[in-house]
């Protein structure tokens, strides 16, 4: 087997809650409690589960948005959990994140050009705006948007277009690993399909590895190579897409699959 690009062993992220009242006891919430998995180069692994299962915390811990309690996360052979913020900064180019809410994750005061240019200068990928604009136009084209949009602000775009811009901001850095946290959940069904196709195509063409975090089993089946089902901070079942969807072993996986409303029609994706 090829060497994994990301290898996580026994990852734990625990939170201390505020004491309830003056004399209340502090509680520890074990959001992520001993999670291990590998992602191979070019592979898409999905973390699927219901709210509160810890799937988002895994992604946030890997990008240093939360602090891990224990465990290891080897990225390109280096444990990224123990790095200082300064040591982690150059790696932020390689590990990028797509967020759920296209309305909250773009700075409303920056033009699209500024939004996409900023990471280029931070990571030294462009020396001046002329260079940056070439890269920005290329990347906008990649996500199906015209270069004319560069001078516009986020409020001028629909949810689907904003999510394309969010994806462009990630792709422009040519990362090695993309963590997508509910990347299509806020979109209308017809737009969700467009963006999902786009993510799948970009992933295939560029060979990026991806950790795809979602609660939607249909979306997960569509995008993943392998799937890990999380429940209460742990992975209860992990396997290839076909193992999970066609022959689920764990009772929780079966429960999840059977809870999805089905449409009986003669014309399924004809």
């Amino acid at each position: 087997m090829t060497e994994a690009i990301l290898s996580i062993r026994d990852l734990k992220t625990h939170f201390q809650t505020q004491a309830a009242g003056f004399l209340g006891e502090k509680k520890v919430i074990k959001a992520v409690d001993g999670v291990s998995f590998d992602i191979a180069p070019g592979e898409v692994l999905s973390l699927v589960g219901e709210s509160g299962c810890g799937k988002s915390t895994v992604g946030r811990t890997l990008t240093h948005l939360e602090k891990s309690t224990a465990g290891q996360a080897l990225f390109d052979g280096q444990d990224i959990l123990t790095l200082s913020p300064a040591q982690f900064r150059p790696l932020r180019r390689d590990i990028q994140m797509i967020f759920q809410d296209p309305f909250a994750s773009l700075n409303p005061r920056l033009t699209i050009e500024q939004t996409l240019g900023e990471p280029l200068f931070i990571h030294g990928l462009a020396k001046n705006w002329a260079e940056a604009r070439v890269l920005i136009a290329e990347t906008l084209d990649l996500v199906g948007m015209a270069p004319e949009v560069m001078t516009r602000h986020p409020h001028e775009f629909s949810g689907g277009q904003r999510q394309r811009i969010g994806i462009a901001r990630v792709m422009i850095l040519k990362p090695k690993l993309v963590i997508a946290d509910e990347a299509v959940s806020a979109l209308d069904v017809s737009i969700q399909a467009q963006v999902l196709n786009l993510i799948k195509k970009l992933q295939r063409d560029s060979g990026i590895s991806m950790l795809f975090i979602s609660h939607d089993l249909g979306v997960v089946r569509h995008i993943s190579d392998r799937v890990a089902v999380m429940y209460q901070g742990e992975i209860v079942e992990m396997g290839t897409k076909h193992e999970i969807f066609e022959n689920p072993q764990h009772a929780y996986t079966r429960k999840l699959l059977s809870a999805i409303p089905r449409i009986k029609t003669r014309q399924v994706n004809a």
Binding site: V189, A193, Q194, L196, G218, V219, K241, V268, N269
Partner: peptide, 13 residues
């Protein structure tokens, strides 16, 4: 809609 019961290569968006 991406379905859970079978594979679809590209969604007909």
């Amino acid at each position: 809609i991406p379905v859970v019961d079978h594979d679809v290569e590209w969604l007909e968006a």
